[in-house]
Design a protein around this nucleic acid. Structure first.
Lengths: 140, 140
DNA sequence: AACTTAAATAACATCATAAGTTACATAAAA
DNA sequence: TTTTATGTAACTTATGATGTTATTTAAGTT
């Protein structure tokens, strides 16, 4: 299956938006991400809907941060992007009442649920300013 | 994305193989799983290669367990089936040296790695006999 | 007002992979 | 020899992110 790289891409974009302090066009972002401006707009639109970025049309327009990085977590962006689940593993649902199928699915789901909770918790602990490396004029 | 339900399906099959104590054909399994005998053979072949089941051709043939359930873990079956990763989330690799991209990917990968380790550990703790519910003639 | 820039959006194609399907070969028992 | 059942190749389908083309809308520039 093709992986969903939108989280990685959008985090990358948000930190750059923060550092440049001016509007960036979808064309510029597309060059940076080695993709297409329409793909950029489509994905950025999900962040705009949640209030993390703003878009301005026309001359001098483009994308800017709408909130400071320290107020945004990985979890915020993850939730803005993904609707489905985190795992490639799925459970069968044969619509019967086989107790074995139920036991199997429960065993798998228990583990995946625990793992998903861990991921969400960890994502919630990371604010985006922690990713803004090499920005200070005098890096440590 | 379509989920990979092979783990769920195969665990279901293995427990039934244990309980029936005789060979089951791919056609019978396909009926049980609401699928196709070729799909069954294709997936069961991965378990056969790892020595968890045996297949016999011809009259009276079919699939049987090659090891007792208590000697097989969810992890064993998971590893027999999956080659790729567990998550739908992927990292970008734009082949540049952008420190932001690296920091972003590291942050995501740290979390996913921790979660994957958790899943593998939990899967390794569950032997398949624990899934064989409702089998005893006198269930508790 | 006309031109240029850039987002917004619709419509469609591509890609990867489990799943589904068809067809045929091979092996074993009746 | 016939039937049963696995083994396997080749192809199609389904799904969802990604990629692409084209058009519309909005805002600044000339």
């Amino acid at each position: 299956m093709r992986k969903d790289s939108r989280l990685s891409r959008m985090l990358h974009v948000l930190v750059h938006l923060h550092q440049l302090q001016k509007a960036i066009t979808s064309d510029q972002l597309a060059l940076m991400l080695h993709t297409n401006p329409v793909v950029v707009r489509r994905t950025m639109a999900l962040l705009r809907e949640q209030g993390y970025v703003s878009a301005v049309k026309g001359h001098g327009g483009g994308w800017t941060l709408a909130k400071p990085l320290h107020s945004i977590t990985l979890l915020d962006i993850h939730r803005s992007l993904s609707e489905g689940t985190l795992f490639t593993i799925g459970l069968t649902d044969e619509h019967n009442h086989c107790p074995i199928e139920k036991a199997v699915n429960l065993a798998i789901d228990d583990v995946l649920q625990e793992a998903e909770n861990l991921v969400l918790q960890r994502f919630g602990e990371v604010t985006l300013d922690k990713l803004a490396v090499g920005y200070s004029p005098k890096p440590v």
